[in-house]
Design a protein around this nucleic acid. Structure first.
Lengths: 215, 215
DNA sequence: CAGCTATGAATGAACG
DNA sequence: CGTTCATTCATAGCTG
């Protein structure tokens, strides 16, 4: 992008205003930044959670892994009603169309094709190009697997169930890396408003600065 | 809130596309919700930090983390090909670092760079140069795909289907809160259950999905 | 209500 | 590099 960092935001703000509310609210750059920040926060949260858990393990916890049973301040503040994540489900009509196209053996649903198909299917319900793309991918994969799994035995029936109920003790604590630890403490420092260490990346404040959010 | 309508977000997206030239937009309301979500993440991190602090205060845990071995107990014990990890999975920390590097615009995954990055990441988990190379390749490809294709086909008969949830308010934050929550618990679950597969809930992709950013 | 199955979606790896 | 494949995860929906 051509906008420079200094007054880039202001200029872009002007751009927004000029183009009205329906224009782009965030530039691609900003969205990218946002993505980064979300990821950063998720990483911090996860590591905090990990560390928290590992320390909990020191207290000789044995069976806290049932999500619902686990309650602490976090769920207290966020434990309100939740909306199950939605995933696209093709309507019968859409499915029919997709099947037809698939049967036509075009085999290679190019991007252009995808667009067209998505357009057509949109007439019959909500759909995105990604949905179409995924559908074809899955369709093909599934077909292959059906035919190909005649003699092959890739199924270690032992591991599938065992893995789920794997009784892990405190061993995995040792698998924490120093990097996780340092990152964790960096995250803490940043959250607590302390001075930045080496990396000095604060997703939250960075966000505030970048977008003027909460400001 | 009535959430029997599982197409709220998509419909709103359609609305956006109809009324604006660009699919990559966030309405002011969406930005508002986004703010709240960032705050939510911040709050989670803070509370985790507090929790950690209180626990650290009572228990000395210095030096419990060493090594970053990535060994699945099963395969480690038997060395048999029961659950071969055929596919590298970046730890959140590794992912974070990669994202940072990618975002720094260095953009040049030269051989030398790859080596360096791999070295750095190796400190946080099992990784190879090929993994790094692939990751950058995939990252770039994905980026381009996202930017290059916008959902461009609005539903034609929108007018007939009255948009009851056009302003879509709290759906977003509820979904996101759920995502954060589940991310947190899944992280714990995974650590308790199995060390591998640290890919829990992905807030970034959730964001993309829910808001249609870049999509 | 609980487990199972089908399948949408995410992503590392590979191909041309 | 852009596209495709293979594998895996998570969930919607069915069934007992």
């Amino acid at each position: 992008m051509e906008r420079e960092n200094q007054h880039g935001e202001e200029e872009y703000l002007q751009y927004q205003i000029q183009n009205g509310v329906c224009g782009k609210v965030m530039s691609d750059e900003q969205v990218e930044e946002l993505k980064k920040q979300i990821v950063a926060y998720s990483a911090i949260s996860e590591q905090l959670a990990e560390l928290h858990k590992s320390m909990s393990a020191r207290h000789d916890f044995t069976g806290i892994r049932l999500g619902n049973l686990y309650c602490d301040p976090i769920s207290a503040s966020f434990g309100h009603k939740i909306t199950p994540r939605q995933r696209w489900t093709p309507t019968p009509l859409q499915l029919q169309i997709l099947e037809n196209i698939y049967e036509q053996g075009t085999g290679t649903p190019s991007k252009q094709k995808i667009k067209e198909i998505a357009s057509e299917l949109a007439q019959h319900g909500q759909i995105s190009e990604t949905n179409v793309y995924n559908w074809f991918q899955n369709r093909r994969a599934r077909s292959k697997r059906k035919f190909g799994s005649a003699n092959a035995e890739p199924e270690p029936d032992v591991s599938t169930k065992e893995k789920k109920t794997k009784p892990v003790g405190l061993d995995f604590i040792d698998s924490f890396s120093q990097g996780v630890e340092s990152f964790y403490f960096q995250g803490i420092d940043q959250l607590m408003g302390k001075e930045e260490s080496s990396r000095g990346y604060d997703p939250y404040n960075n966000l505030v600065e970048q977008f003027g959010l909460l400001g």
